[in-house]
Design a protein around this nucleic acid. Structure first.
Length: 345
DNA sequence: ATCGTTACGGTTGAC
DNA sequence: TAGTCAACCGTAACG
């Protein structure tokens, strides 16, 4: 049950703790930034904390999305029954096959792609837990594996495929490979990059980025078991993000042809003008942001609420745009196209 | 003054 | 069905 009213931040803006800002405001933030308005001025105008503005703009620059991430739920697993079945088949055909060979075959046979390919350790776990007979193979494998470097050895290098142009000095990812939401954003960025080109392989010399309480886990004495779990988690994240990105990119036009002007194919948001060039912000007097939300994030933005004190029919933050936009949310539960109408500045 | 980062308290949805 | 977990959110504060 959602509360009836939001809270008011230090700038006088209304927000709902734990819930994303309405798409209209997110869009407005990006629009203003593209007009050259400084983030601090955007913050003041829209009465959104500067940290939030910063975060939304950073996300937009990295992924091209103004949408919030998927909240809640679990990551889809990469070790689907189909994958397990194929692994079992490979093992039955060649009992001496190595986990890394199975991995290669899953990829070569098109059972998996690079985004949902299980790690060697995951395959090993499947062999051990669901298929059995691995212990014998492990001994065999330990002697045989030398010529082929174990892909999942305990190193901190992760292959990333990047478009060289994207590796510009201004790329937030490049400048700060470890970010608050590092891995997810890295992968989102990676997926976006992959779409448009490339096969230039770089390596990121960090495992992943932790936030908050995640951080101390197993570090620095990272055990093999933890490493395996980390790897599996990361690959599952990759699989999840691939789905997310494909959904969103399809909503954005999909072909990729619309993303060629800038390094990441998106308008950059990095030049500023002064604030007075934009009209003043009129905060809503109706402090009920929830009315703009439906059960999911899909249906907010327009509606009878969020009306400014003036009583105009504009959206509450006066952030309407001239052209109706269609947003497609990043999760399956939000996969409808949502028209967003808005009026001028 | 500005802005990146992060602790915090909160929501959400799959399991 | 309720609880747990891990994702996400925006704010506030710090540097």
């Amino acid at each position: 049950m959602e509360p009836a009213f939001g809270e008011v931040n230090q700038l006088g803006g209304v927000f709902v703790n734990g819930r994303p800002l309405p798409n209209a405001i997110r869009l407005r933030i990006v629009e203003l930034a593209q007009l050259g308005i400084r983030p601090c001025d955007i913050s003041r105008q829209l009465r959104v904390s500067h940290g939030c503005v910063s975060k939304i703009l950073a996300r937009y620059n990295e992924t091209g999305s103004i949408l919030p991430g998927a909240i809640g739920g679990s990551k889809p697993r990469v070790t689907t029954p189909t994958v397990v079945k194929h692994i079992r088949t490979y093992k039955q055909r060649d009992p001496g096959i190595f986990a890394w060979e199975i991995r290669d075959r899953l990829l070569a046979d098109g059972v998996c792609d690079k985004f949902n390919l299980p790690s060697v350790s995951s395959i090993s776990r499947i062999l051990r837990n669901k298929i059995g007979n691995l212990s014998q193979q492990s001994q065999y494998e330990s002697g045989k594996q030398a010529p082929h470097p174990p892909p999942q050895a305990i190193v901190t290098l992760q292959p990333l495929i990047l478009i060289p142009d994207v590796q510009s000095a201004h790329s937030p990812w490049h400048a700060h490979p470890s970010r608050t939401h590092g891995h997810a954003q890295d992968m989102a960025f990676l997926a976006l990059c992959n779409r448009y080109s490339g096969d230039t392989v770089y390596y990121r010399a960090t495992k992943r980025c932790y936030k908050r309480a995640d951080a101390p886990k197993g570090l620095p004495g990272f055990s093999l078991e933890e490493e395996e779990e980390e790897e599996e988690e990361e690959e599952e994240e990759e699989a999840s993000l691939k789905v997310d990105l494909s959904l969103e990119l399809s909503a954005r036009g999909g072909s990729g042809a619309d993303c060629v002007d800038t390094p990441n194919g998106l308008p950059t948001v990095n030049s500023y003008v002064t604030a007075p060039s934009i009209p003043p912000y009129h905060p809503p007097t109706q402090v009920s942001p929830y009315m703009g939300y439906s059960a999911t994030t899909s249906a907010y933005v327009t509606g009878p609420t969020w009306q400014p004190a003036s009583g105009s029919a504009l959206s509450p933050h006066s952030c309407d745009i001239a052209t109706p936009l269609a947003f497609k949310s990043m999760t399956a539960s939000r996969d409808a196209i949502h028209p967003v109408t808005a009026s001028a500045l």
